[in-house]
Design a protein around this nucleic acid. Structure first.
Lengths: 220, 220
DNA sequence: CGGTGTGAATTCATTCACAGCG
DNA sequence: CGCTGTGAATGAATTCACACCG
């Protein structure tokens, strides 16, 4: 039985997907074992951090050798709760929503897009071939869709004005977590974890470090 | 002359765009002044953090009153280096690249997409109406494009395998910063700030907190 | 030896709490 | 009186450095 009693710090959680990716890549190239130094390099962090992070999951390394790639992959996956696929519904079929729907990266990593909804009746009925032919449905169908398809996460890709109502609809429909691309803070019950990603914000942050460069600073 | 001598902590820099957004929204609704409590609410952080963050930019508030919306907006913009537009080139016109090209959010916040390149000759020549009719060019033209159009930031939207060569090309072409959507760590000179955004990673992190919910944890 | 695992030391970020000013 | 600005206190994350083990 795995040690899941102790807490995993937030900063560690945010890095686990990096390790997960690196491990998948290592497995692909046939490596069976990996040191903290190598893993650190692949993940773009330093080795001490890797060892500390992994130690929160348990003592899964072998001294003098390193970590078993396959075994560690399983431990990281399990810690992240990546057991089986979690289906996704995209709310909003504007530019960004279409973009995300066509982007295959979600499905590739275990988050298949099984439904898309929009409030605009003229968009309803459109089929998206990239996501296995999913057809856009009306947002009023959301609760039914979530229940019948067992949707786990809702992705908000609406304009800022509609983001809160999209969130309310998703919460009402019973999704388990929410990823929002709208540049607003959402009011969501504490029981439902959610995150906000704002693409333009990333550029603004870069802008700061760019203004700094030539000096001594560098970002992440 | 503004106090730009003292350092602004990284954690603060990452929040400045949030305040910037909130301020723009306040200006739009006609507010002329704002307290740290109100700003905190709009940005989704707590008031103490807002005051501490803003204090790194200078003493721009008025005790007993709050901050002047317009004036503070300027200070935040200036700190972030958001003076005028910074043009963007997107490298990679696959699903994600097309997605980003059609997404209007970059231009709306001062980062117009002025060029798109791809290595695939069959994609060259495609026009994207959403970005003012920009036509996809071959990646070999990158250096020329960056120089002639004064491109400031490169966005990598290639598959993982091509991300490093895209980065090399961008660095060689002379861009000032790089935003990558490829799930790999890039080797980029320290003089050029860059960030990585991985959409699927966000879902994996959510997955963790989702597994936790019902208990006592909540994310951001 | 080589590399993990981890306490201890350090650095960084957040929060508190209140003096001081408009 | 209200709200900023900020030292001081707390807490979290990172880094160091080395004992320990395979």
């Amino acid at each position: 039985m795995p040690r899941s009693g102790d807490v995993v710090p937030d900063a560690t959680v945010e890095r686990l997907p990096l390790y997960h990716q690196a491990l998948v890549e290592l497995a692909r190239t046939g490596e069976t074992t990996v040191s903290s130094v190598k893993l650190a390099e692949l993940a773009g962090v330093n080795a001490a951090k890797v060892r500390k992070d992994l130690s929160f999951l348990g003592s899964y390394g072998t001294r003098g050798v390193g970590y078993d790639v396959d075994f560690l992959t399983i431990q990281v996956s399990r810690t992240l709760g990546l057991t089986g696929d979690s289906s996704v519904v995209i709310v909003g079929f504007g530019n960004l929503g279409q973009a995300l729907a066509k982007y295959g990266g979600f499905a590739d990593r275990g988050f298949p897009v099984v439904a898309i909804v929009d409030a605009d009746p003229t968009k309803v009925g459109t089929a998206v071939k990239e996501t296995d032919g999913v057809v856009v449905q009306h947002v009023d169908e959301l609760a039914k869709i979530v229940r019948s398809q067992g949707v786990a996460v809702g992705v908000i890709a609406t304009p800022a004005e509609s983001a809160q109502s999209a969130a309310d609809a998703l919460v009402g429909a019973g999704v388990q977590s929410i990823l929002s691309f709208a540049p607003v803070v959402l009011d969501i019950p504490e029981t439902i974890p959610w995150r906000k990603v704002d693409l333009a914000t990333e550029l603004q942050i870069l802008s700061f470090y760019q203004a700094r460069s030539g000096s001594l600073q560098h970002p992440a």
